[in-house]
Simulated scan of single mutants.
Amino acid sequence: MVIDNHCHAGPGDGLSGPWDSDAGLGDYLRRARAAGIDRSVLFAAFHSDYAVANRAVARLVAAAPQRFFGFAFVHAARDRGRILAMVREAVEQHGFVGIKAHRFDARISGEVCEAARAFGLPVLYDPAGEVAVAELLARQYPDVDFILPHLGSFADNWAAQLALIDHLVRHPNIYTDSAGVRRFDLLRDAVRRAGAHKVLFGSDGPWLHPGLELEKIRLLALPEGDEELILGGNFLRLIGQG
């Protein structure tokens, strides 16, 4: 089974760019089917109220529960004081299996991590290049699994991506995904140094082509077992289904 660990969906209301506008799945799903992607993890686009956005994602997941997993998007600063309640709703009412947060909203907080710990969820936190946070997360929350996507920097910050590889090697609960990683040799080095069990396949759909992102994993030419870990096995293990 091929699982895309990283796909935005549903309404955005900022209208400053695709990232906070409506994220429709039509083209993405057509491309994903053609590429052989079986399931996708959905979370909201940037939004002014993630409680509203998460419910919209929940409707998408509920309409195709064998196709989608859901992650609850939270804003560490704006949602302060209600994050546990938001995550509880996402898990108990909508069946979500993880938490999403982004540095462009706010730096991750202890409240986010405590909610993840309370429900046994992985956290997909985009540090936007501030990868030193991995050291703090690993030490203070060793029982919570963190996925720092884009090898730590969607902006192609070579130094940040190189530094994240060291964190992947040293910390058992720090992971990454392949979404949008343009420096192929760094992606290869992450797998070689940290192991295939520390990298997940992601596309950053619907804005990046899932078939193109999947081909990067194929081009690593890994042993079959290692490729299967990246393409779905690692994700299922992190959510307790592997």
Rank of each mutant, 00 (worst) to 15 (best):
L236Y: 00
D13V: 14
V74A: 05
S109D: 06
A76S: 14
E135K: 06
A196N: 08
R82K: 13
E215C: 13
A179D: 06
P172T: 09
D38G: 15
P206D: 00
K198I: 12
K100Q: 11
G120E: 14
S109L: 03
G152Q: 13
D156I: 10
L124T: 11
G152L: 14
L238P: 00
G180Y: 03
F71N: 02
A51W: 05
P18Y: 03
D49F: 05
G195A: 07
I174H: 09
D143K: 13
G180Q: 04
S178A: 15
A32M: 03
L29E: 08
L164F: 14
N173A: 06
E215P: 09
A221C: 08
A179Y: 04
R78F: 05
D49K: 04
R193N: 12
R192C: 13
A23H: 05
L212K: 04
V74R: 02
E215I: 11
P122M: 04
A64K: 04
A163V: 13
A44V: 12
K216G: 02
G98A: 06
F46W: 04
G202N: 07
V169Q: 10
S203R: 02
A23E: 05
Q66K: 05
N173Q: 09
I83G: 11
I3H: 09
F73G: 07
L186K: 05
R78C: 05
H75K: 09
L15V: 05
A85C: 13
V199D: 08
A32F: 02
S109P: 06
G10Q: 03
W19L: 08
K198Y: 11
D79H: 01
L84Y: 10
N157L: 15
L222W: 02
D105I: 15
A9W: 05
H150N: 10
V112E: 10
I3T: 14
H94V: 12
D189E: 15
D105Y: 14
G129E: 10
F46Y: 06
H150M: 10
G232S: 00
I230T: 04
A196V: 08
G242S: 01
F104E: 12
H75G: 07
G240Q: 00
P18Q: 00
G81F: 11
L136S: 13
A77W: 11
I165Q: 10
V133W: 07
G211C: 00
N157G: 11
D13F: 11
